[in-house]
């Protein structure tokens, strides 16, 4: 597997996304792609060459893009509507709510280059609010995959699911996570990547491999951290959350706002059903210009930042 713009051993999840969509399209002519002049940034050039009639480029018009997606679903297609996460979600929010979710249309929304992938371009291009916004919408499944395997699996699961789905797709280089043979992805099912009873790290997307590294550092200090990959934010896997809460402390971390997203969802559940001390790591608000790595570091979204938050929690518990 080669990702041209990712360092050795790391992968751009867009490649896994387009491979999965092409594979689906080859097997099912209902699969279509809808883009907002984003063939290149969505890496759908090869899809266009293979399935020219099934690549619908509406131009720079996100409200129409999502409405057209809903109409294609009405017409029997399974549309993958792909655009930069920031524009797809913010610009077309009412179309996502009314035309896709409330209308219960079978539309797959793919937020490309989400989070702070466009680091230097600034907060207009960062998509850190998307999960907070979208998880508030009823009937919309929300998935944040962690690596190429999970991205491909989530796309295939989204295609098989009859209903609207949002998949947040990163372009930030990430490693392929080690998984046991036979590992399977299911919408609404969290993945416990590391068992542990001292504290739980509940994470998703680009923070999963960082949380695993944090758990390794904590293990060296004699702390057994449980790492839960909560790829589906809506609906939440509450069984996995109950088990996480049973450790007595939870740290959440996500490439998004520190409030309202995954951390907010976990806090809502735990406050009502499994009260537990929590720390929520993410971005505090609009981010300045800067490289992606710098933005992650300044907000503590690193293995060291997650481990430090875990140590603070353990110290509080005494």
């Amino acid at each position: 597997m080669a990702a041209a713009n990712a360092p050795a051993g790391l992968f751009d999840c867009r490649d896994a996304y387009v491979r999965a969509v092409e594979e689906l399209a080859a097997a099912d002519n209902r699969i279509v792609a809808v883009v907002n002049d984003s063939v290149g940034s969505s890496k759908l050039g090869k899809f266009r060459d293979r399935f020219p009639d099934r690549l619908i480029n509406v131009g720079i018009a996100e409200q129409n893009m999502v409405g057209v997606g809903a109409g294609l679903a009405n017409g029997g297609k399974i549309p993958f509507v792909s655009g930069a996460g920031s524009f797809l979600t913010a610009r077309a929010m009412e179309q996502i709510k009314a035309d896709c979710a409330y209308s219960e249309q079978n539309v797959k929304l793919c937020g490309i280059s989400s989070g702070v992938a466009y680091g230097e371009l600034g907060a207009t291009h960062h998509s850190i609010e998307d999960i907070a916004w979208l998880r508030a919408i009823d009937k919309l499944t929300v998935i944040v995959p962690a690596d190429p395997w999970e991205t491909a699996a989530a796309i295939k699961a989204a295609a098989a699911h009859d209903g609207p789905v949002y998949v947040k797709i990163s372009r930030m280089p990430v490693p392929e996570l080690a998984r046991p043979a036979g590992a399977a992805f299911a919408i609404g099912k969290a993945e416990t990547l590391c068992e542990g009873g001292d504290i739980a790290l509940v994470v998703n997307g680009t923070l999963v491999h960082r949380a695993l590294a944090a758990a390794e550092a904590l293990a060296a200090e004699g702390v057994a951290a449980r790492v839960v990959n909560m790829a589906t934010v809506s609906p939440l896997d509450t069984d996995a959350l109950a088990a996480a809460a049973a450790t007595g402390a939870i740290v959440t971390a996500e490439e998004g706002l520190a409030h309202g997203g995954l951390g907010g969802a976990v806090a809502e559940y735990c406050a009502q059903h499994a009260p537990v001390r929590m720390r929520m790591l993410g971005f505090a608000g609009f981010q300045p210009t800067g490289s992606v790595d710098w933005l992650f570091e300044r907000s503590g979204l690193t293995a060291e930042g997650i481990a430090a938050a875990a140590r603070e929690m353990l110290a509080l518990r005494g």
Binding site: N64, G67, A70, G71, L72, D99
Partner: peptide
């Protein structure tokens, strides 16, 4: 909202 959805239906 109606016309974008109708355009999608017609494209299908």
């Amino acid at each position: 909202h109606g016309l974008p959805v109708a355009v999608g239906i017609a494209v299908a």
